[in-house]
């Protein structure tokens, strides 16, 4: 097993714990934006998709790479935009709370 792979495992495990601890106490009000925001972050696969599309060998690889970029970009742009749209609506209306 390469040292790079072991490093990857270290990063994966630590990042999982960080994610768990950071998000654990999120209030129910924010469950949907959290989910769609996190979902946009999973679009980080765009990095892999760009590498795949740019360095692929042959036509099939090119097609796979193209759709990988398209799918990942839908996820990234759509995810962040829709989360922003939702969060824009979350307001504390003054004077309404007693």
């Amino acid at each position: 097993m390469s040292s790079e792979f072991i490093q990857g495992i270290v990063v994966f495990v630590l990042a999982s714990f960080v994610g768990f601890e950071v998000i654990r106490r999120v209030p129910p009000t924010l469950h949907t934006p959290l989910m769609s925001g996190a979902n946009a972050i999973s679009g980080i696969t765009i990095v892999g998709a760009i590498i795949a599309a740019a360095t692929g060998n042959g036509v099939v690889a090119g097609i796979l790479g193209f759709f990988a970029v398209v799918f990942a970009m839908i996820n990234v742009v759509g995810g962040f935009l829709v989360t922003d749209r939702m969060l824009e609506m979350f307001k504390k209306v003054p004077g309404k709370s007693r």
Partner: peptide, 18 residues
């Protein structure tokens, strides 16, 4: 690529909590 590993792990954890 570590960026994918970090981002993916964060989302994996967030989804699991929910």
């Amino acid at each position: 690529n570590q960026a994918l590993i970090i981002g993916g792990a964060l989302v994996g954890a967030a989804g699991l909590i929910l």
